[in-house]
Simulated scan of single mutants.
Amino acid sequence: MIRLLSSLLLLIISAGTAFGQTKITASEAAKIFEKNKKVQLLDVRTQKEYTDKHIANSVNLDWNQKTEFEEGLLSKFNKKSPVYVYCLSGGRSAQAAKNLVERGFTVYEIEGGILKWEAANLPLEKSLSQTPKGLTLKQFKALTKDDQMVLVDFHASWCGPCKEMEPFIKQVAEKHKGKVKVLKIDVDENNTLTKQLGITSIPVLYLYKGGKRIWKHTGFADLKTIEKQLN
């Protein structure tokens, strides 16, 4: 009888792991991601949290934005492959993981989220330099007067095209390090400045050289468009 109960318990645990959600440590997850760059990795925090820092190659779907979460899940994730999910410390990812399991996904939840990931000294993708809130026109001019070219990205967290451009801006900062300095200005946090500069829509890119603006682009810009101005 004891042997039978043990076998049944093992069967239940195995089934739960295969068809449900499994928790893995940050270190275990990092080893998997290092070997496979194409894993389905889901970050369920807010857009702002994600922009500040996130695990490389992750997709951000805010768990608290139910409609967007549902739509993004259907369009960006495949049930045939496992999904690795994380948040800041584990609360939201646990809820999201349960939801995914109910939908038929195989889920691996990263224990402790970003906090445990950082504690293990694992790498994170971090945002480009954000300007302070309430930047004055004088301060702005001082920041754009530099020996390097200065690319200014006027954006907002709610702006779809801004989010699409973010990877391009990051590539520019990395590729042209030492030649181009990138400044990201949140228009909601710098309302007075953007009014003084006459910015009425976003995204907007300004390129400065020696304190003088040499290029302005309003609306979405792909990497090729930006690179053309830098070269």
Rank of each mutant, 00 (worst) to 15 (best):
K116E: 09
L137S: 08
E118W: 00
D147G: 15
I114F: 03
Q130E: 11
D146C: 10
G134L: 06
S129C: 06
L128T: 02
E118L: 05
I114C: 04
H155S: 14
E125V: 12
A119R: 05
I114H: 02
T144A: 11
D147R: 14
L124C: 06
G112S: 03
S157W: 13
K138E: 12
D153S: 11
C159H: 13
Q148H: 12
E118F: 00
D147Y: 12
E111P: 00
F140W: 04
K141N: 13
Q139F: 04
V150R: 07
L143G: 09
N121G: 00
L124P: 01
M149K: 14
F154Y: 14
I114G: 04
Q139W: 07
S157G: 11
L137A: 10
L115G: 00
W117A: 02
I110F: 02
E118P: 00
G134P: 06
K145I: 02
V152M: 08
A119C: 03
A142K: 13
D147C: 10
L135C: 06
W158V: 12
V150I: 06
L122R: 01
L122C: 01
G113T: 00
T144P: 09
F140D: 03
W117H: 02
L143T: 05
K141T: 08
P123S: 05
K116H: 03
L124D: 02
I114K: 03
P123W: 05
D146N: 14
L122F: 01
H155N: 13
K141Y: 07
L128V: 01
L137K: 12
P123G: 02
Q130R: 07
K126Q: 07
G113L: 00
A120L: 01
S127Q: 09
L115M: 08
D153M: 11
G112C: 02
K141L: 08
I110N: 04
G160T: 15
D153K: 08
S129M: 09
S157C: 06
F154E: 12
Q139V: 06
G160R: 15
L128S: 03
L137M: 08
G160H: 14
N121K: 10
I114W: 01
T131V: 10
G134R: 05
L151I: 10
K133D: 13
D147I: 13
S127D: 07
K138R: 08
S129G: 08
E118V: 00
F154P: 13
K133Q: 11
L143P: 08
S129T: 10
W117N: 03
Q139T: 06
S127G: 11
L122S: 01
S127L: 04
E125C: 05
A119M: 06
E125M: 07
M149I: 05
E125P: 04
N121A: 06
T144W: 10
A120D: 08
M149W: 13
G134A: 06
K126D: 03
K138S: 10
G160Q: 15
H155E: 12
E111D: 09
A156Q: 14
S129H: 11
W158L: 11
I110L: 04
S127K: 09
K145M: 12
Q148S: 14
G112K: 02
L115C: 01
P123L: 07
T144R: 08
S157N: 15
D147N: 15
Q139L: 05
E125D: 10
F140N: 02
C159E: 14
Q148V: 12
D146L: 09
V150W: 05
